[in-house]
Design a protein around this nucleic acid. Structure first.
Length: 134
DNA sequence: GCCAACGTTGGC
DNA sequence: GCCAACGTTGGC
């Protein structure tokens, strides 16, 4: 089991819409590092859903239901997509300020590499974030 | 709106 | 292969 965090601007694709639609095709990633992480996603891996730009907070947990396949929105087969479904919403959204002041989370890639849109989480980081949000 | 931190592109 | 110029992301 692996743990991940993905970012989405709520103005583009929000958690609310994700829940309403019941599923998301996670496509459009055009960054090699993010793509390489996506290729390592396995069915049933858990994924924290972060609202970037507006909100700047983790809003819920999703799950991988389909592993990488060619991104239907790309004109090159090198890009990939995965399918996600919502699992549960955070009771308390975990914003970036809270994350930054938590010493346990100081090595989180969300902080260290702010532009990365798909990133792995250690189990410890995953648990710490869930503890803050659930 | 600004800027830091990347990524990409293209000339050499 | 290097690097300047430019583009994008995302926090502030």
């Amino acid at each position: 089991m692996n743990y991940w965090l993905v970012k989405s601007e709520p103005a583009v694709f929000s958690w609310e819409r994700f829940v309403k639609e019941g599923k998301a095709v996670w496509d459009g990633v055009r960054n090699y590092q993010a793509r390489n992480y996506m290729k390592n996603m396995c069915i049933d891996d858990l994924v924290l859903f972060y609202h970037s730009n507006t909100g700047k907070e983790i809003v819920g947990i999703a799950k991988v239901i389909k592993e990488t396949y060619p991104d239907p929105t790309a004109d090159n087969i090198k890009w990939v997509a995965v399918d996600l479904v919502p699992v549960s919403a955070f009771k308390k959204f975990v914003n970036i300020e809270q994350i930054k002041i938590n010493i346990k989370l100081k090595d989180l890639l969300l902080i260290k590499q702010s532009r990365l849109s798909v990133m792995p989480l250690s189990e410890e980081h995953y648990r710490a974030l869930c503890k803050m949000g659930l």
